[in-house]
Design a binder for these strands. Structure first.
Lengths: 222, 222
DNA sequence: TATCCCAATTTGGTATCCCAATCAAGCGCC
DNA sequence: GGCGCTTGATTGGGATACCAAATTGGGATA
């Protein structure tokens, strides 16, 4: 594995887990020292992270992308048509073995799972469903949208009741795809996306000052 | 403007105009010589182009992304839900001045316009409509999809009748958005996308060998 | 205390070099 | 003629040095 890939993976993970705070300044020479590598792979990694929207240029500085709470609504608007299309295509194109793999994924991560696992499932499930559509563009676009939502979702403290509900909704969507019931699957995924949107908006509505106290740069939803 | 940006812009343009053939190998040192700049900005530019899907790694080489005719269908599947959502939101959120700007764009590029201008309008119109939605994710996703389709569309030799039809369809979509007739606008954009898909598939069906004679690497749709 | 100026430091952009892995061409053998 | 091996060339990954522009902090002055 190249140095660039190591740095990229590490930084990506820290950004998504909020270990690197939104708005935090990064410098090539700082990272060079931190990773004990030269600037060349650091820069290549930063360029790739920039391409993923995880870091930006602010003047001549690199900064971790701020948290944009305003994106919660925009992402739901984006996901709704894409994911309903994805499940409709999935009903037509799904392969039994892939369905079983997703079912295994769900069984391996019940609502009582550790927080990080639970969080990861929330993304992986949706991307796996999109893959069933057989459309790489839809899959990629959705994966990118879920990455954008990753940090915001991490800030939400989900209780057991909402986890149960989410898990059951995931399970129901998968079942409907297995039964090739496209209309019901579309309705189920749409409801799930809207539920996610509303839950996030409610949960984060009053916590903005708390996040800022962590040094997070928050924009949007003012 | 930095050297990296100059190289990036130049290469991007040549790839999209098929001046750099799909599948063509690029080397850092070759580009260094060609642009009379050091490898550092060349490498940065290549990384950015990679992020846009315009170049790939093949083993240790950089190559211009092949032409994937199989994407014609996938892109239409992707655009359909996105653009219908975009026009529906546009009906609600559009601003008069933006509508007029798009109308001016259409007037400035009639079906008799030079090929390059006509080609550019085909992309810019759709991105401008998506912008009316006020959803940056949808706009960006669509812009990227149009870039993917750019080279394929360039290969099509459009006749005057099909240009007239396309121009009228664009005009009709804009008018429906202006009138806030969401249902009709969605139907019109859907029909337009499907028409584009069918037209491209038909036009390119028998021309694959001709393109390969140009040294283009063609994949998909076999 | 506030403001301004200056020098030092920082930072990204670029150039150049070194290294290891891969590839291509040529040669020899069957 | 074909195949395998060797050697030299090519290529990207990484390291380091230089440069110019921007930023920061400290000192002086009002």
């Amino acid at each position: 594995m190249s140095q660039m890939t190591q740095i990229f993976d590490r930084l990506r993970e820290e950004i998504l887990s909020l270990g690197l705070a939104p708005g935090e300044k990064l410098t090539e020479r700082g990272l060079e020292t931190r990773f004990t590598m030269s600037r060349t792979p650091v820069r290549a990694a930063l360029l790739r992270l920039e391409g993923e929207g995880l870091v930006h240029r602010a003047g001549r500085n690199w900064v971790v992308a701020p948290l944009d709470l305003g994106e919660i609504v925009a992402i739901a608007e984006f996901r709704l048509p894409l994911e309903t299309t994805a499940v409709r295509l999935a009903c037509a194109r799904r392969v039994e073995a892939d369905l079983n793999a997703i079912a295994d994924m769900l069984e391996a991560c019940r609502p009582t799972a550790p927080r990080e696992e639970w969080h990861r499932l929330g993304t992986e499930f949706h991307v796996a469903i999109a893959k069933l559509s057989g459309n790489a563009l839809i899959t990629k676009a959705l994966a990118e949208a879920m990455v954008r939502l990753h940090r915001v979702r991490w800030l939400e403290v989900s209780d057991e009741a909402s986890r149960e509900r989410a898990w059951n909704e995931h399970h129901e969507i998968l079942t409907l795809i297995r039964k090739r019931d496209a209309a019901a699957a579309e309705a189920a995924i749409a409801a799930h996306i809207n539920e996610t949107r509303n839950r996030l908006l409610a949960a984060l509505q009053d916590d903005r000052e708390r996040f800022r106290a962590h040094g997070f740069k928050i924009i949007g939803a003012d």
